[in-house]
């Protein structure tokens, strides 16, 4: 009987990602490209649009229960924005099982502090799309 029960609830998991543009920078080509690549990889992508405040990203990440939060920042404001987002996720108990990846222009000297702040991976300019997708597939949290 147990066996039947299992087969009735067939798991149809999809990897859900929030692709977020945070802060004032208005360059969203990269975010569009990655959204499309994620879609083609079979992920469900929620795109936030431009100019989001950290608490808006937190609201979206919590409500959408995303596995992956991909943040694109080209303005250089990552050192202030990322900790705010991480703190917000922690407030709702959503930090532990969300994979946070960061894209855009992040200077080498900031990379280690970003990881310490809670970022799981940083993909700079020129990263092959397949590398990012592979990383997400392998590291999307088990739930």
């Amino acid at each position: 009987m147990e066996e039947v029960e299992m087969s009735v609830e067939e798991d149809q998991r999809a990897i859900r990602c929030l692709v977020a543009k945070v802060g004032l920078d208005g360059h969203d080509r990269g975010a569009h490209v990655i959204s499309r690549a994620f879609r083609d990889a079979g992920f469900e992508v929620i795109y936030s649009g431009l100019h989001n405040a950290p608490d808006e990203i937190v609201q979206a990440a919590v409500q959408e229960d995303v596995d992956v939060l991909g943040i694109s920042i080209l303005s250089g404001a990552h050192n202030t924005l990322i900790p705010k987002i991480v703190a917000g996720l922690e407030e709702y108990g959503a930090f532990e099982d969300t994979l946070i990846i960061l894209g855009g222009v992040i200077p080498d000297k900031d990379k280690e502090p970003m990881r310490e702040a809670g970022v799981d991976a940083i993909f700079g300019p020129g990263t092959p799309m397949s590398e990012t997708i592979e990383f997400v597939r392998e590291n999307a949290p088990e739930r």
């Binding site: 994620f38 083609d40 990889a41 079979g42 795109y47 936030s48 649009g49 979206a60 959408e64």
Partner: peptide
Amino acid sequence: TGGAVLGDRIRMASTTGD
């Protein structure tokens, strides 16, 4: 691919953060 881009949230600008 079964993938999707879910873009409706972008229009929900009046209530973000709430």
